[in-house]
Simulated assay, not measured.
Amino acid sequence: MFQTTRYLKFGDCDPSGIAYFPSYLDHLVGVLEEFFATAGVPWPTLIQERRIGVPTVKLDLTFSKPGFHGDRLDFAVRLKRIGTSSMDLEHEVSANGALLWRADHRIVATSHDTHRACPWPDDIRSAFMPYLETQDA
C-alpha cells in the first residue's frame, strides 16, 4: 500500500467550506503521479521519454462524508491487479480518522504514438510488484 497526505485548500472548497468534489480528482491525479514516482517510474520520464501515458478508463467513487477546508486528507492507494496493459487501484481517503470517500480506479498504459493500449514494459511491471496486494486463498 502507498500512503500520502494532501490538504484541502481554500480553492478546493465551495463557499460553505465543503470540498468541491472535482477538486478531489485533481488531488487523486497528484497522488497517482506521486505513487508512480515513489515506485521509480516518474511521469516526466514515462510520458516524455518513453511516450507512455496512463489514462483513466474507469473511476467509481463513493462518498461517505464531506471534507472541509483545512482537512488533512490521508490517501491510501492499494494496487489490486496488474494486467497486460491495465492496472486496478483502490483509493481510500480519510480525514481525522474517518473515511471520506473511496474509489475503484483502472488506468491503462497507452502509446503516445498510436494512442492505443500497450503492454506494461517489464521494468515498470517489476517496479510495481512490491505494491501488488495478494489475495488470500
Results as ranks from 00 to 15, higher is better:
Met87Glu: 00
Asp60Val: 10
Asp113Phe: 15
Leu73Gly: 03
Phe10Pro: 05
Arg72Lys: 15
Cys13Trp: 07
Gly67Lys: 03
Asp60Ile: 15
Met87Trp: 05
Leu73Met: 09
His105Ile: 13
Gly17Pro: 11
Pro15Ala: 06
Trp43Lys: 08
Arg50Met: 12
Leu89Gly: 03
Tyr20Ser: 07
Leu99Trp: 05
Arg102Asn: 13
Ser94Trp: 00
Thr56Tyr: 06
Glu33Ala: 06
Ile52Ser: 03
Asp122Lys: 10
Glu92Arg: 14
Val41Cys: 01
Ala98Arg: 14
Ala109Leu: 08
Tyr24Asp: 01
Phe10Glu: 03
Gly40Ser: 08
Pro119Cys: 02
Cys118Thr: 15
Phe21Lys: 05
Trp43Val: 10
Leu32Met: 15
Ile18Glu: 06
Val93Asp: 00
Val41Asn: 00
Ile47Lys: 04
Leu32Tyr: 04
Tyr7Phe: 12
Val41Lys: 00
Val108Gln: 03
Gly83Thr: 12
Thr114Cys: 09
Pro42Asn: 02
Ala103Leu: 06
Phe68Ala: 09
Ser16Met: 12
Leu99Ile: 13
Ser94Tyr: 01
Ser86Val: 11
Ser86Leu: 08
Asp12Met: 10
Thr114Trp: 10
Phe63Thr: 04
His115Arg: 11
Asp71Lys: 07
Glu33Cys: 01
His115Glu: 11
Ile52Glu: 04
Gln48Asp: 14
Pro44Thr: 08
Val29Arg: 11
Trp120Lys: 00
Asp113Arg: 09
Pro119Asp: 04
Thr45Val: 15
Ala95His: 01
